[in-house]
C-alpha cells in the first residue's frame, strides 16, 4: 500500500513539472560529465605514472674533468668519493632506493656507441668524454626530492637529475585539465543543487494542499517528504546515468577507437575505468538530491 502510494505520488509529481525535471536531468548530466572527466583524467595521469615511473631512474652524475660545479673543484670524482657516496646511498637512503647501479665512463661509452654507432652529430667522442653516474631506482619515484636533498652538494657529485622531469610538462597539462574540469564541475554542481532545490520547492508548493492534509491526518514526516525526495533523486540519477553513458561513449569512440589506434604506445583509460567512476557519479547525484531536498523540505513541509 505504502509503496504503491509513494510510487503513484512520485510519478504524478514528475509528470506535473516535466520541464523542471528535464532541466534537473540535463544540469546533473552536464555537471557529472565534468566530474567524470576530471576523474578519468586523473585516472589517466595515474596510469601514465604507473607505466612510466617504472622506467625512470634518478641519475647522480659524478664530477667529470673540468666541471665548474663547486663540489667538483677537486677534479674528477675519485674512487674514495664514489665509495663514500655508495655508503651514503646504502645507509641513509636504504629505505628510498630500491636498486643502485654505477654506470662507469666505460659503460656510458658502450651505451652511447650502441645508440649512435656513427658518432653524435658528426663528432667522434671518446670514453673520456663520458660521465660516470649512479643510476638509482627508487622504491617510490615520487621521493626524488629526498634523494636530491641527501646527495646534492656532496663531494664528487656534480648534479642529481630526475628523469621524471621529462614527463612533468605532460602531467602538468593533464593535471590542469582535470582541475579545469573539476572547477567547471563545481560550478555546474552548484547550479544543479539550486535547480533541484527550486524544482522540489515548486513541487512542494503545487502539492501544498495534499501535504497540508497529510500533516493534519498524522502522516509521518518521512512519508510526507519521501515522494519529493524520490523525485529529486530520480531526476538526478537519470542525469548521472546519462553522464556515465556520455563518458562511456566518449572513451569508447575517442580514446579506445581513435587515440589508441593512432598513438598506441601509451596506456589509456578504458571503458572499464568509466564503469569504476560510475558509482561515484551516481553517489554524488543521490547525495546532491537528498541534501538539497532535505534542506528545502524542512523549510516547506515541516510537520
Amino acid at each position: 500500500m505504502r509503496l504503491q502510494f509513494v510510487v503513484t505520488e512520485v510519478l504524478q509529481g514528475l509528470r506535473r513539472n516535466v520541464s523542471m525535471v528535464i532541466s534537473v536531468v540535463l544540469v546533473t548530466f552536464v555537471s557529472l560529465t565534468f566530474v567524470g572527466s576530471a576523474a578519468l583524467l586523473q585516472t589517466q595521469v595515474d596510469k601514465l605514472k604507473d607505466d612510466w615511473y617504472d622506467l625512470v631512474e634518478v641519475s647522480v652524475f659524478l664530477c667529470p674533468n673540468g666541471s665548474t660545479a663547486p663540489t667538483c673543484a677537486a677534479g674528477e670524482a675519485t674512487e674514495e668519493q664514489i665509495d663514500a657516496l655508495r655508503t651514503v646511498i646504502d645507509t641513509e637512503l636504504a629505505d628510498v632506493v630500491a636498486q643502485t647501479y654505477l654506470e662507469t665512463k666505460a659503460d656510458a661509452f658502450a651505451a652511447f656507441s650502441e645508440r649512435y654507432p656513427d658518432g653524435y652529430q658528426g663528432t667522434q667522442l671518446t670514453e673520456d668524454d663520458m660521465q660516470a653516474s649512479f643510476r638509482l631506482k627508487l622504491v617510490d619515484p615520487e621521493q626524488y626530492q629526498v634523494v636530491a636533498d641527501v646527495l646534492t652538494g656532496r663531494e664528487g657529485v656534480e648534479v642529481v637529475e630526475d628523469q621524471r622531469a621529462i614527463f612533468q610538462p605532460l602531467f602538468l597539462a593533464l593535471n590542469r585539465a582535470s582541475l579545469l574540469a573539476a572547477g567547471l564541475a563545481g560550478v555546474m554542481l552548484l547550479a544543479a543543487v539550486l535547480l533541484i532545490t527550486t524544482t522540489i520547492r515548486l513541487s512542494a508548493m503545487s502539492r501544498r494542499r495534499e501535504t497540508g492534509i497529510m500533516r493534519l491526518v498524522g502522516a509521518s514526516n518521512l512519508f510526507v517528504q519521501l515522494p519529493f525526495l524520490l523525485e529529486g533523486a530520480i531526476a538526478a540519477v537519470v542525469g548521472a546515468v546519462l553522464a556515465v553513458g556520455g563518458l562511456w561513449l566518449g572513451v569508447k569512440y575517442f580514446v579506445t577507437d581513435w587515440l589508441q589506434q593512432s598513438v598506441n604506445w601509451v596506456a589509456y583509460v578504458t571503458v572499464g575505468d568509466v564503469l569504476l567512476v560510475a558509482p561515484l557519479l551516481i553517489g554524488i547525484a543521490v547525495a546532491l538530491a537528498v541534501v538539497s531536498s532535505v534542506v528545502t523540505l524542512n523549510r516547506y513541509t515541516r510537520v
Binding site: R209, L216, V217, G218, N221
Partner: peptide, 19 residues
C-alpha cells in the same frame, strides 16, 4: 516532534473551507 503524527492520528479536523 516525531510523535506529533501519532498525536494527530487521534484527532480529526474539519474546516470551514472543507479542504
Amino acid at each position: 516532534s516525531w510523535k506529533v503524527p501519532s498525536l494527530r492520528r487521534s484527532i480529526g479536523v474539519v474546516f470551514q473551507d472543507f479542504r
